[in-house]
Design a protein around this nucleic acid. Structure first.
Lengths: 156, 156, 156, 156
DNA sequence: CATGAATGAGCCTTCATTCAT
DNA sequence: AATGAATGAAGGCTCATTCAT
């Protein structure tokens, strides 16, 4: 029984290759054919899975954020201090990997000049921040959101 | 009486324009002609003052670091805690300007993938760190240098 | 049944156009887009088949030499005087075409200042000269090679 | 008493430098500032003495031809075979110098694609050929001119 | 789905030429 | 006469993107 569609496997292979290549060379010094070679697929295929390089960047940028650790903790239905600790631990684990550290740095620099990416990042961050504030403090006010942000920023 | 050579004025005008443009668009999204327009000179003239775009990047990268505040404090012959406070204040003043903040971010991201720039930055930083460690703690050991770096990093 | 790959057809079309354009304008007065237009392809495609303009020049330079007539005679297994006559005739046929005459002149001038091209030409010429000396005189000594060169030079 | 005007000295210095530089690098690979440096003058000054690079090329091209030896022989009022021998000897002397040989090669290649230069060279050559034909054979008919040309070409 | 040839916009850089001093 | 800063046109090359197969 085939649980993982072949389609998704290839897509994931491309994303994974792109993360590695982007982290190493930076977005603008990484031509598409580097990614294609790293992923072991043709250049053209990348445009079958992603409309443009920008869209690929967009998804990579999202992955450079620690969304996955946060989601993982949220799915455990933790609350208050325990949730916060879980998220903190997730951060540390993720950014122990230099590929993710490099990627985050590039993403932040990109966001500084690339409106679409900046907006996307901001949206993703605010969404998660609100949920965390809600679950940790019981309400998602301006103050509690800032508290979350400060805590997570300090971990970096 | 003309104390500043016209030659240096133009060079400075270009550097200043480049900082603004690079900070706004990022190195790779900022074509030379953006800088030329911002500086009010022709594209060709930039290559009269700088051998290549890379050389321009190099000088800008150095300027994105807080070398000037540090040098300014050092020239006051301060020591110990006072020197540290002076440098700390210099940092805050410099990076209050979003142009400098953006530039630093781009420089760090660049350094992550651009060996020449990374090396140049590292050299400049280590040099200043050693001097500060010496003046603040009385000796430039591995530990005192790390202390300096940690303190300054924390300010960011 | 298609015996010639499409890929080679295009490559040949570019080379042929380049020979014509270079012969007419000279290497340095012939921008890539002249060749592209003459070949009926895009500028970019030329760099798909040739790494650089220099690589294109290199291959054209080799073609400006009378290698093909020489090879043609050699493949007939002629020897002595008959081989010499065959080669001589090949020369005359090739350089009756003004495109080839112009190309040879440009190639020689280029070789006078372009080390890489000069070296490549020299290598190709010496190789063929040795083989001819061997087949015509029975041995490839310094003297017989000079004799071959003098004979062929006189035909020009 | 100043017999040579300073003006002509500088002009000659530029021409001499240009011949050396052109012979070494070829016309198109020799930027004006190479010549300026070789001559020890500023780039701008070259345009004071020569309207354009093309005009400079033009004069250099003329100098790559063996006009001077021919004129020298003509001024000796020789005739017939003796004139021919004098010219022949002049040729050999001039082209013993690799700078002149290189220059002639470049000039011929240029003439193949640069109409103005080709025309100028042709004019100069025909003029001298006619005079030589007249002095050597007693008349400047088509046949005698071809004879002169053949003789001189054979010397190369 | 997959490939890679083909396209064209855009960028860095060079260089002849001008001109204020 | 002489200088060298300033200009702008043009060229080689890269690379995201398209498309026929």
């Amino acid at each position: 029984m085939m649980m993982v569609r072949e389609k998704d496997v290839v897509r994931e292979k491309i994303l994974s290759a792109a993360m590695k290549v982007f982290s190493t060379y930076g977005y603008f010094r990484a031509p598409i054919h580097y990614i294609a070679k790293e992923a072991g697929v043709s250049k053209g295929l990348i445009f079958w899975y992603f409309r443009s390089k920008e869209e690929l960047i967009m998804e990579i940028a999202a992955r450079s954020l620690p969304l996955q650790p946060v989601n993982s903790c949220l799915s455990k239905n933790l609350q208050g201090k325990e949730l916060l600790e879980c998220v903190g631990k997730g951060y540390m684990d993720k950014y122990r990997d230099p590929v993710h550290r490099g990627l985050l740095l590039h993403t932040m620099a990109l966001g500084n000049t690339y409106p679409k990416i900046a907006e996307n990042i901001r949206k993703l961050c605010e969404e998660k921040t609100s949920i965390l504030a809600e679950k940790v403090f019981g309400e998602a006010s301006t103050e509690t959101r800032i508290a979350i942000r400060t805590f997570l920023g300090g971990l970096m």
